[in-house]
């Protein structure tokens, strides 16, 4: 599966859990435009964890959790 599809699948699974959907969607679009591969996305999200508030941090961590699951499924 192309890496962007992996991201989209993880997002679809994570979306019901995410509290700040609008913010997250915009953020993800931005990241997808700038990233070159899956690792770039993971790194960017992980870096963001430091700067965001608790609610957004949890949103990001949940997304990473689903991303990991989708990637595992790929392997």
């Amino acid at each position: 599966m192309p890496w962007k599809d992996v991201i989209l699948e993880a997002y679809t699974e994570a979306r019901p859990y995410i509290v700040n959907v609008k913010w997250f969607k915009e953020l993800l679009n931005k990241i997808l435009n700038e990233a070159k591969n899956l690792n770039d996305v993971i790194k960017t999200v992980q870096n963001l964890l430091e700067s965001e508030d608790v609610v957004k941090q949890t949103d990001l961590k949940i997304f990473l959790m689903f991303l990991e699951k989708v990637m595992k499924g790929q392997r």
Binding site: V54, Q57, T58, K61, I62, L64, M65, K69
Partner: peptide
């Protein structure tokens, strides 16, 4: 467990 890890 996964959710616990994702939360504070």
């Amino acid at each position: 467990i996964e959710l616990m890890r994702s939360s504070t």
